[in-house]
Design a protein around this nucleic acid. Structure first.
Lengths: 337, 337
DNA sequence: TTGTAAGCGTTATCAG
DNA sequence: CTGATAACGCTTACAA
């Protein structure tokens, strides 16, 4: 372990004081040309690199932020993370990645960890649980919610236009003659999914279709295999009873993937025997046969915007507006409807 | 900004000294029951949380590691990141996410950043460039290479069995009668891709097929659209000349996606008019029509193993073996060949 | 078992 | 413009 070069060493080498070295480091005050070059040369000679941790202790700023998301493996969140990270690095911040796996306990554990590490701020896709505890843990750390919000915690948020996207997508379905919609949803109550359902219902009502005619298929676990099984069984039953919907609307990309597989299992021809629409577009929906219609969320942009919000607030702490930014979604009609 | 609670406050509240508080915090020495409960109560009362940054300054350990990968948006890397993160959190470490975008400059920038932040170690998927500089920047920070290696930097590595996987996949192609292979590759020289080519060549030779009969289609940019265009044009030309391969072997998932689209553009029936094999399996290859054969890399496990290596080494610095772990790949034959 | 005090590597205050 | 020096919040000898 070669001893690390400190500001003291640089001062000695440059024949000056640590304060002067610090001043050229931070540019916080004027330094004579002569001294500055002496210091710069000493730094180069010694290969000195100031310790962020010492600096952080002194300044109470770590230039790092925590990103808590459900699962980075989900394309939506990886795109979001990418957007956030890009903005962060551009502004000199680094980002700690935390996968909560939608588990309230992990969420709390992570929140504590980043708080203890004294991150300057947090970008947070909440599970929806532990409202009060979160507020308490986070305390006064600047926080931006992403994708979902949570009422107990006052914070800015960046979300997608879930209701609007679902509404327009449902209208497209209806206009193409799919009047009987089956909604594939996930069991746990989530704000985003609820909004999507609302959008669909609004479209239905707007076309004088009773919302009771659109059954909701609720899967309890989000694993593709499970979704596939549940949807397949549900559909089989309905088909036998002659009471099946003419199109399925899956409320997120994982549900969409499972649904697609269920449809394949049953050998149902898309879009003739069953239409398919999924909320949250994936790159590969473009290349399946047939290509699948989806409503696209601006994931990367959401991450970028959330990070921008956060850093803006860190850098000029004047404004404490907890605004919620709603980013538009885009309905992409392909051949599955 | 409510002033933060420090160990001093706890000591005062508990009627003891800071050292005693520190001892109950770290468990580094025995403390009488009475004092301990006094301290614990004081901590609870005050909501004290020790500052990791102060601790790090003192102990020279930050309990954080840097993860540098090409692009988290690529499913291979997000799975890898997930595996790494899981192991990290399990052992009390946090992970900084850095996307290098395969850009040597960004790579250097990030390496400097994590080093300045005094991460305890680095997991690093190198671009392949700046060997000497990397060695210099990283200095004595424990480092584990992932996916690719780089000769100038002595470090442990975790890689997939690229050659073996490609070999077995090529054998499968040949056995099914695809004797004329077109290899879709990326232009920049990369160890992993080279190994894959080697594997294919070995399979060809083993079946007495001259390797010259397997042309390499080199795309200069990895964007799907570009891959698609290049492959389509190349194929069109060959088809017209009556000199096309009978199957295409794409060397990574992005190339695979682009190739698939090119095949669709040309209306070539898979697997009858053209076979397709891609290195690096994606979830959705299972659900395309037809499902696509691929060789699967244990991405998540690679991340986990790399992190395990790294942390093991941090925790018992005795061993300095720069071993390279080669994880097996699995050929998954589906209906595209 | 407990307390005092000396750092860890910076930045910031305050004189000169 | 420059230099001592006191924090920052913690851990760890060293003493008691």
């Amino acid at each position: 372990m070669p001893k690390q070069v400190t500001i003291q060493d640089v001062a000695r080498e440059a024949g000056t004081s640590v304060s002067t070295v610090s001043r050229v480091l931070t540019g916080s005050a004027r330094v004579s040309k002569a001294k500055r070059v002496a210091v710069e040369e000493a730094i180069a000679r010694l290969g000195f690199r100031p310790s962020h941790v010492a600096r952080s202790l002194r300044t109470h700023a770590t230039f790092s932020v925590g990103l808590l998301v459900n699962d980075i493996t989900n394309p939506f969140f990886s795109a979001l993370a990418r957007g956030a990270e890009e903005e962060a690095i551009r502004r000199g911040y680094s980002m700690m990645l935390c996968n909560t796996d939608n588990d309230p306990d992990r969420e709390l554990q992570y929140l504590r960890m980043v708080r203890d590490k004294r991150v300057d701020g947090i970008i947070f896709g909440p599970t929806g649980a532990n409202g009060a505890q979160i507020a308490q843990i986070v305390g006064s750390i600047p926080l931006v919610m992403i994708d979902r919000r949570i009422d107990e915690v006052p914070a800015a948020a960046v979300v997608a236009d879930n209701e609007g996207g679902a509404y327009r997508a449902a209208c497209a379905l209806i206009q193409r003659g799919y009047h009987r919609l089956g909604i594939v949803a996930w069991l746990p109550p989530m704000e985003t999914l609820a909004h999507r359902v609302t959008g669909i219902h609004r479209a239905l009502s707007g076309h004088d279709i009773p919302i009771e005619s659109a059954p909701i298929i609720r899967v309890s676990r989000i694993e593709p295999k499970e979704v596939r099984r549940v949807v397949r069984e549900w559909l089989t039953e309905r088909l036998e009873a002659g009471d099946a919907p003419s199109a399925l609307f899956a409320l997120n990309n994982q549900l969409g993937l499972g649904t697609l597989r269920a449809l394949r299992d049953l050998g149902l021809k898309i879009p003739d025997e069953m239409g398919l629409m999924v909320f949250d577009d994936l790159e590969f929906f473009e290349v399946t046969l047939p290509p699948i219609s989806a409503v696209a969320m601006p994931a990367r942009q959401m991450g970028q915007r959330a990070m921008r919000h956060l850093l803006d607030r860190l850098e000029k702490p004047g404004e404490h507006l907890h605004e919620v930014t709603v980013l538009p979604t885009e309905v992409r009609i392909r051949q599955s409807i």
